[in-house]
Each structure stands twice: as C-alpha cells, then as structure tokens.
C-alpha cells in the first residue's frame, strides 16, 4: 500500500517516541488518507458519470429551447428509416459471431489439450494476435478479401452485413480464448474425456455432453463478451461499407442528433446490462468453490 507523500512533524518525531506518536501518526494518516480518497473518488465518478448522464439527458430533450423532457427521440427509433434493420443486423451478427467463435475455439482448444499439447503455444499466440494488430490495419487487409466474398455471394444477399461475421470472429478471438482457457484450466479435461471415451462415448458426445456442460460459465462468458464487442463495433463495418447499428447511428447523428444519441444510450445500456450479467456469471462458480 502506498500513501500520499506528506511530511508532517509526526513523521520526523517517529524515532524519538515510537510508541505514542506512532499510534497518533497512524490514526492521522488514516483520517487524512480517507479524506483524500473521498475527494479523488468523487472527481473520478464525476468524470466518468457526467458524459453518461449527458447521453440520457440529451436524448430526452424537448425540441427547441423549452427545456422540457420528452421520450420523442426514443419513440422515433423503431420508425427511423433503416435503423430497425441495422439494429436487427447487429443482433444477428452478435449471435453468429459468438456461436462461430465458440464452434471454432472450443473443439480446437479441447483437442489441443488432449492430443496436441505442442500446438498450445501456437494456438495461444494466434488467438492473442488480434490484440496487437490494430483493427484498422486488419480492415485494410480484409478489404481485398471482402471484394472476393462479395463476388461469390448470391446477388440477393449482396449487401447483407452478416458476412462481417468472418471478420468479427477474428476480433473476438483474444477475449473468447482467454475466458475459455481459464475455464478449461479449471476442469480436468483429460480425465473427463478419457472416462467418457472408455465408456464408449464418441468425440461429439464428449464435447457436447461432457466438456461443454462443465465449461458452462466460461462459454457463457465468452459469448457475452463477443456480443458486447460486436454491438459496439464500428471500424470494420463502416470501412467495408456495411451498415450495422453503430454505422447507422453515426449517419443519423448528422441529421437527427437526438435520435442518434437515444440509440447510443440504448445500445450502451444493453451492453452495460450484458456485462453486469457477465460479472455474476464469472463470480458464481468461484464463490461456490471458496465456501466448500
């Protein structure tokens, strides 16, 4: 523990009367520390809280300088041209991405643990790589790939943003990998799968009915993180010319600021809610273990 640098007279007299002044020094230091902490906490709470409050405040303003409150902007969301479609697209992308990432990662990570431990470092490196390559750099590389994807998509689905799933799975890899890895470390994959295999279970049964249920919280965690990330994604969609909720929101911001801010506040609240749920999911099993 550190303390704010203060050189009171008590500090210098410490050597002369360690017993009494030591206790007084301690009490004074604690009191002072408490006050400093309170002031600092209030300042940080204001810095982080005010912009969030402002989002809600701005989205409920009445048109004109009246200063009244209205939910007009919020009610306009379902009617705004293009906006509901963008919201649906983002939700579908979120679902597809989390399912895709799980189907890609869970079997691979289990398999690597059981049969290919030599590959574990490589898999870890590849999964964490997107953290070090800026998304904007990846977009530059994805642009030619997406020209090809577009070329091979049937004409009726040409402009669907759902193809962004391919890119989004890469973006969520590091987060999904970390949560799944800590989940897998907590269970004995080898014993579980050998027990199931020796009783005649197929690999699919092992994965779906033995490993997956044991990984429950980690899988849910990874899925929720992916959903949160996809709902807030703007860079890739906007630069590859697909419309998701963030791109639509940004475009509306030019014309109808209050509606755009209402969407932003709504999206933010749902992500907060998701991550709030997630903090419970993450804590559940740990608490059970500690009371045992």
């Amino acid at each position: 523990m550190t303390a704010p640098p203060h050189l009171g007279p008590a500090a210098t007299s410490l050597a002369t009367a360690p017993e009494r002044t030591g206790a007084g020094l301690h009490a004074r230091r604690l009191r002072r520390r408490k006050m400093v902490r309170g002031v600092l906490l209030a300042a940080f709470a204001a810095f982080f809280g005010i912009p969030l409050l402002a989002l809600v405040e701005f989205s409920t303003r009445e048109r004109g300088a009246g200063g009244g409150r209205t939910l007009e902007a919020w009610k306009a969301i379902p009617q705004y041209p293009g906006l509901p479609e963008a919201i649906v697209a983002s939700l579908q992308l979120a679902a597809l991405t989390s399912v895709g990432a799980l189907f890609l990662l869970v079997p691979t990570m289990v398999w690597v643990r059981l049969r290919l431990p030599r590959l574990s470092r490589l898999v870890e490196f590849l999964c964490l790589l997107p953290l070090t390559i800026p998304a904007i750099v990846l977009v530059v590389g994805w642009a030619p790939l997406y020209l090809w994807i577009n070329y091979f998509t049937p004409r009726t689905y040409q402009s669907t943003p759902l193809v962004l799933t391919f890119a989004y799975v890469v973006l969520v890899l590091p987060y999904a990998y970390r949560t799944l890895d800590s989940g897998l470390s907590a269970i004995d994959v080898r014993t579980l799968s050998e027990a199931a295999r020796s009783l005649g279970a197929s690999w699919a049964t092992v994965l779906l009915r033995v490993i997956a249920p044991n990984l429950g919280p980690a899988i849910l965690n990874a899925a929720l993180l992916s959903v949160a990330l996809v709902l807030g994604e703007f860079t890739v969609a906007s630069l590859l010319n697909y419309v998701n909720v963030q791109v639509a929101m940004n475009a509306i911001g030019q014309a109808e600021a209050r509606v755009a801010v209402a969407v932003a506040a709504g999206a933010l609240m749902s992500v907060f809610l998701l991550l709030f749920l997630l903090s419970f999911v993450g804590r559940g099993p740990r608490r059970v273990r500690s009371t045992r």
Binding site: P51, L52, A54, L55, G232, E233, F234, T235, Q246, M249, N250, G253, A260, V261, A264, A267, L268
Partner: peptide, 9 residues
C-alpha cells in the same frame, strides 16, 4: 467503451 457512443457522449 469507445467508438461512436463515446464520441456522442
């Protein structure tokens, strides 16, 4: 937390 929402905030 970042992106468009933060800019709007």
């Amino acid at each position: 937390f970042g992106g468009v929402t933060l800019a709007f905030a």
